[in-house]
Amino acid sequence: MSSLALAVRDASTMLRRNLLHARRYPSLTLNLLLTPVVLLLLFVYIFGDVMSAGIGGGGADRSAYIAYLVPGIALMTIGGTVVGTAVSVSNDMTEGIMARFRTMAIHRGSVLIGHVVGSVLQSVMSVVIVGAVAVAIGFRSTDATALEWLAAFGLLALVALALTWIAVGMGMVSPNAEAAGNNALPLIVLPLISSAFVPVDAMPGWFQPIAEYQPFTPAIETLRGLLLGSEIGHNGWLAIVWCLALSALGYLWSKAVFNRDPK
């Protein structure tokens, strides 16, 4: 078998294993979905009137704020899903099963590839579920073309890939599952200090650069542009560069840790 065919075969075996875990223990995935859904409902129905007054120069109604909120919530959903990935990678690394995989004549990276592909698939599925909730409470895109929808999904998948590789690295260096969950927490917290809930220019001046140049804001602004027709500007390529850079960083980091001799 050629090494590529071997890689594909072993990685898909590992992917099946990860999806089996997810299917066998849906509560873990659902728990991670709970945070973005609760935040969505909280910000729309509890804080909605105040929040909507703050965007679009005031006077926006609730449906306008839902539209504003959804791109950020979608990215937060991905952040939450990959926390689960960090935990399951950490579980694998600390269990004896990893030693078994390492002593078998299988494609070396297949365990990690299985985690990454599984995590991206789960992220996209989670976004679809959270998106369905958003649509149910009144989210509508304003005249997005099929191509724009496609681009939006592409961007979400790219963000998922980037965050997944970072989460895999975090899972690998964590001594146990709890630590992995904690280490990956920034992936949920970062969206809170982005333009997900309020516009960057409504934040204090000293904080604006932090909010503006962190990875989530350009991705959120790009999604808004694609789905709601707002200005994308430099956010488009900024989002893509962030995603590619984070993916490369996470990949190299994970690979380096994986190739170290286990203790």
Binding site: R17, H21, R24, E95, G96, I97, A99, R100, T103, A105
Partner: peptide, 17 residues
């Protein structure tokens, strides 16, 4: 690796499945 089988000191089974 193609010739060996290893059973380590700590259980190497996937407990979730």
């Amino acid at each position: 690796r193609a010739a060996i089988g290893v059973t380590g000191q700590f259980s190497a089974v996937d407990g979730l499945i």
